[in-house]
Amino acid sequence: MPVLTYSQALNEALREEMQADPRVFLMGEDIGHHGGVFRVTKDLIDTFGPERVRDTPISESAFVGLGIGSAMAGMRPVVELLFMDFALVAADQIVNQAAKMRYMSGGTLSVPMVIRAQQGGGRGNGAQHSQSFESWFAQIPGLITIAPSTPADAKGLLKSAIRAGNPVMFIEHKLLYSTKGEVPEGEHIVPIGKADVKRVGRDITIVSYSRTLLFALEAAEQLSRQGIEAEVIDLRTIEPLDMDTILESIRGTVRLLVVHESHTNCGLGAEIIARVYEQAPDTLITPARRLGAKHVPIPVAEALEDAVLPQVADIVKAVEEMM
């Protein structure tokens, strides 16, 4: 199987979907001749031309809105935001428009659109370029939210997202783009709403996604050397949430830790743990825990950013405390 980077895998998904479906087109800043700041749209303009690979002005609200309008009129836009932080500039279009169109129209309109962007910290990009918004998107009925951690999942989920027929927030991570992995060629589809057990273990379930999923796997390796076997679940889709996979896992491990880079406060960890206590009240033998960013904006200096974002060592420590 070919080994691709995360950005190459996304590029392959876009290329294949554009080849298969003439309704698919791209909009975003510097995605054309430059090929995207993170190279995800590299060379696509050569194959598909500037009509389908459209460089936009710095007008997020407008080009997200145009995406929505074009989707309602039969196109399948994939819109790139340079940083997920800029979703806030287009927040009205995403939340008040895209997410609600189908519902408000009694099902007569639909918005088959993907909004892709990278998010997250770890690179010292500062408070306005390092945020993680998935918990917040998951709060909005009408949005599907996806956050793959591996190149193969990135490809398979982007293909599904483009075909989903609904507005999708497709979350990439700036520090995942250069990670590599085997990626099936051609028609490789990963279903939306299906978590993946990335590591099997008997002692504790660690639920994560996106970049912290890699941290969880690394922590699991370290824990294994002390005889603690962690099962690591990659959510892959944030909304709709695959509770079945989580519940099945914790029936075996009876311990649960949720790890994410977005803020702990009102984060996805809170939601997952609340659902576990509602749906499987007597399963856990030790209180479930969550690890996320501390409740401050993301700082730049390394010592500060490391203190705010969850690290591998934090996961190891939390698990040790729970055993």
Binding site: G126, A127, Q128, H129, P299, V300, A301, A303, L304
Partner: peptide, 16 residues
């Protein structure tokens, strides 16, 4: 350089 003596104590960085 992300130092405590920076104008934003290392919190803001180059863009702030």
């Amino acid at each position: 350089l992300g130092k405590a003596t920076g104008c934003s104590k290392g919190k803001g960085g180059s863009m702030h």
